[in-house]
Amino acid sequence: MLTKRIIPCLDIKDGRTVKGINFENIRDAGDPIELGALYAAQGADELVFLDITATNERRKTLAELVTRIARHVNIPFTVGGGIAEVEDVYALLQSGADKISVNTAAFKNPGLVDTLAREFGSQCIVLAIDTRFEDGDWYVYLNGGRVKTDRKAFDWAKEAVDRGAGEILLTSMNNDGTKQGFALDITAQLSQNLHVPVIASGGAGTMEHFVDVFGNAQADAALAASIFHYKEIEIPALKTFLYEKGVNVRF
């Protein structure tokens, strides 16, 4: 039976992880490779590396980093952050990334999703959506949540899937950082109506939150960052907890 996935997310800046203190058992918590390999060894099902570098050297640094990750990490990983060009995707996949995620660039130019799916296959194209609930609905935000749009998250997700996106990474800005749980309603709406996997993100604070998002909201995967980086929840304990609650997970 296909299992629910637990995905730690690592923010990368200039080739280094931004968050990630509190690990006494690795030499350099700022090293994305060491941290990624540690999560893999603990039973993470996938990794997401989100690049927030804003320099001109970005492309080259990122491709080199991806090669190093692919060399050392034996589970699948996605790379995202500012990806806008077919050439960028080609370089990242050639470097060994399993999937890439697109967000703002795809919203501004939806044809990018069609192009990427046709060139590389839907299975490696993840559409990331940052969304906020206001005035009675969930709206898409761009540029890392700084720019509001008047497009509803569900509508955009559906269009992107029709255009060939193979997975949706849905981040609720209302929930992100609150540790009060995932946004169950919008996650459920997407997961129950789209024929691609939905990765829920934002709000994880307790192990029960993962049970809720997999159970009630039927998410296919759940992503979190700080609770893993700061060891508030450790992956082996989380998986044992989920298993005991009847969630199908990999050991």
Binding site: D45, P197, R250
Partner: peptide, 17 residues
């Protein structure tokens, strides 16, 4: 192929036994 009664996610992505 997706059964009529529930939506099957295609492609299958993830860990299976």
């Amino acid at each position: 192929t997706s059964p009529v009664e529930n939506l099957l996610k295609i492609p299958q992505i993830g860990w299976n036994n």
